[in-house]
């Protein structure tokens, strides 16, 4: 079947303006009865147009004033949260510094901790290849999972399950 027909636009216009088939010219109707592209266009456009006219009134659409009010409220909350963010960052950094300092003091004064670190260092040095492999695996695994999920989602917007039959 050819991908285009010179009358296609005319047929689509008639279908989308709800003039098809009664309001269309007889010559056009005759053409559509013999043209695969145009009959397909008329069928799809009329069906979708009919569905649109049925579906639109069925939606439970919230009041515009309510949507505006909620948007204002949310924008305001987000603005406050954004303004508070630097304070939270400073607090987190202060906590991290204090924890680091405490850890450093503990590491410097604790004998068994130093012995454990030395044992671990020796263990890693003796199994360097295994340690490097583990580090690479830990770093690459999340990336691989992310890429796999992205590829699976490409080209689809929603629910792709196909019904049987």
């Amino acid at each position: 079947m050819a991908a285009a027909c010179e009358f296609e636009a005319e047929v689509l216009a008639a279908a989308m303006e709800s003039r098809w088939p009664e309001g269309a010219e007889p010559q056009l109707r005759e053409h559509v009865s013999t043209c695969g592209v145009c009959s397909e266009a008329a069928l799809v456009a009329c069906t979708i147009g009919g569905d649109r006219d049925t579906l639109r009134p069925a939606g439970a659409i919230p009041d515009s004033g309510r949507v505006w009010y909620l948007a204002q409220l949310r924008a305001r909350r987000e603005a406050i949260a954004a303004a508070d963010r630097p304070i939270t960052i400073v607090q987190t950094m202060a906590l991290a510094c204090a924890t680091g300092l405490l850890g450093a003091c503990f590491g410097a004064t604790s004998g068994w901790f130093q012995a454990t670190v030395e044992r671990l260092t020796a263990l890693v040095a003796s199994h360097a290849l295994l340690a490097a492999g583990t580090v690479v695996l830990v770093l690459l695994l999340p990336v691989a999972i992310y890429v796999a999920i992205q590829q699976e989602g490409t080209g689809t917007i929603s629910g792709g399950r196909r019904p049987a039959g």
Partner: peptide, 28 residues
Amino acid sequence: TARGVWAYVARVTGDRQIADDLLQETYY
């Protein structure tokens, strides 16, 4: 535009509940 957007999301996702949920978010 609201009814048109709602119908569009309902048809694309195949789920009117999702369309209800996404309408407010879309305008926000």
